[in-house]
Computed example of a mutant assay.
Amino acid sequence: MSGTHRILALNYSQTGQLQRILDSICAPLCTNSSIEIVRVNIRPARPYPFPWPILPFFDVFPETVGEVAVPFTLDWPDGAPECEADFDLVLLAYQPWFLSVAQPMMSFLKSRDAQRLLAGRRVITIIGCRNMWLMAQERMKVHLSRLDAHLIDNIVLTDSAHSMLTFFSTPLWMLTGRKGPWLGGQIPEAGISDTDIKDASRFGHAIESGLEKRTPDDLHPMLDGTGAITINERLIDSEKFGKRSFILWGALLRFLGRPGSFFRRSVLLFYILFLITIIVTLVPLFALLKLATRPFFRKRAASQRAYYAAPTGEGRERIDAFGLVSETDGQALAPAASGQDHPCAQPDRDQQGNTI
């Protein structure tokens, strides 16, 4: 069909969680006859495993931080026009890896496909992660600016459990493929909650409303006041420190050899132990120092929050206008509630594009 407004929704989802988030956001848009959505997945030529063994996981760290592109294809739906399509809006859904844009999405950003699809267009970024995303989004901003794309909004969904618990639950999910809960519920289920994923449909309603009202050259946010972003200011300094460390170690490891080489992996084992030590010692210390000094740096903290929350902001005053789905039914949400039952939800596929 040919809609009045055309939206490109592009993502890479290793576990399927990010795809469910995008399904939820797109659901209200898919029922509007004046909106056409084209869903496109990034398919790395060499799929990343899931579950992901620890050494292969860390072995992609140097190239991820160094923004080294890998071969990929765009999985266009049958019959969809490709780069000639005239899209009014682009949704880019990605994960942060090692405080950086995940390698498949970064590979897209550095490609000619990105130049054709993003130049001059309005973009909304969508992030699903454990808790740290600020430094990745900073790099996303740089590349979108280079591509002459216009970032008008950012949506961030994170694991709502305490960070000390997700420190265990997230790696267990990655290493085993099982979300939990673990230890009889002492370690909660990993990932973004079903409630939060289902409630992400409000962003689709806000986008639907915004598209109907704006002119093609309107670059103001559509999602301000919808609770799209919450800044955890206690993690800002930890992210900055971690990013600098990752850049230095990543450059060293790339210098030591190609992925999988013996010498590189030997040093990588040492780095893994070093990183775990830093996470369990310095990260909590940074958070405590931030909390202790907060009364003396309120203006600086407010300025940081405003900067990292831009362009959407942390406002929540318009949530009632678009509603939280979980508050309207008052029922527990099944894992599939934000997935396959949506009108434009994509079937679950592996990274080679096969339906699973």
Results as ranks from 00 to 15, higher is better:
residue 34 S to R: 13
residue 88 D to P: 06
residue 338 S to M: 04
residue 134 L to Y: 05
residue 134 L to D: 04
residue 149 A to L: 00
residue 8 L to A: 00
residue 314 E to C: 11
residue 207 I to G: 00
residue 108 F to Q: 01
residue 254 R to E: 07
residue 30 C to K: 06
residue 229 I to C: 03
residue 314 E to P: 06
residue 237 D to G: 08
residue 326 S to V: 05
residue 187 I to E: 02
residue 51 P to F: 13
residue 214 R to M: 09
residue 136 A to L: 00
residue 171 P to T: 11
residue 244 R to N: 05
residue 247 I to H: 07
residue 270 F to Y: 13
residue 257 G to I: 04
residue 38 V to F: 06
residue 233 E to V: 09
residue 302 A to K: 12
residue 334 A to W: 14
residue 271 Y to M: 14
residue 186 Q to M: 14
residue 68 V to G: 03
residue 316 R to S: 11
residue 69 A to K: 11
residue 296 F to L: 15
residue 211 L to A: 05
residue 65 V to C: 01
residue 41 N to M: 11
residue 340 Q to N: 14
residue 253 L to H: 09
residue 39 R to S: 07
residue 289 L to I: 15
residue 321 A to T: 13
residue 162 H to R: 13
residue 146 R to L: 10
residue 264 R to Y: 03
residue 71 P to V: 08
residue 112 R to Y: 08
residue 190 A to Y: 01
residue 119 A to N: 12
residue 310 A to P: 08
residue 149 A to M: 00
residue 158 T to F: 00
residue 80 A to I: 07
residue 60 V to K: 08
residue 56 P to I: 11
residue 331 Q to V: 11
residue 355 T to P: 06
residue 79 G to V: 02
residue 21 I to Q: 05
residue 322 F to V: 02
residue 183 L to V: 15
residue 266 S to K: 15
residue 71 P to F: 06
residue 190 A to I: 04
residue 255 F to E: 11
residue 182 W to D: 15
residue 24 S to N: 07
residue 44 P to A: 12
residue 129 C to W: 03
residue 155 I to N: 00
residue 120 G to P: 01
residue 2 S to F: 12
residue 35 I to V: 12
residue 171 P to L: 10
residue 216 P to N: 07
residue 93 A to H: 07
residue 296 F to K: 07
residue 237 D to V: 15
residue 281 T to P: 08
residue 12 Y to P: 00
residue 66 G to D: 10
residue 221 P to N: 02
residue 102 A to D: 14
residue 24 S to T: 09
residue 353 G to Q: 05
residue 77 P to C: 01
residue 91 L to H: 04
residue 229 I to V: 15
residue 312 T to W: 05
residue 267 V to W: 02
residue 136 A to Y: 00
residue 117 L to A: 05
residue 23 D to Y: 02
residue 309 A to V: 13
residue 148 D to L: 06
residue 168 F to Q: 08
residue 243 K to M: 07
residue 234 R to C: 06
residue 298 R to L: 14
residue 150 H to R: 03
residue 149 A to G: 00
residue 104 P to D: 08
residue 299 K to E: 11
residue 32 N to E: 15
residue 111 S to W: 03
residue 65 V to P: 01
residue 351 Q to G: 04
residue 287 A to H: 10
residue 21 I to H: 04
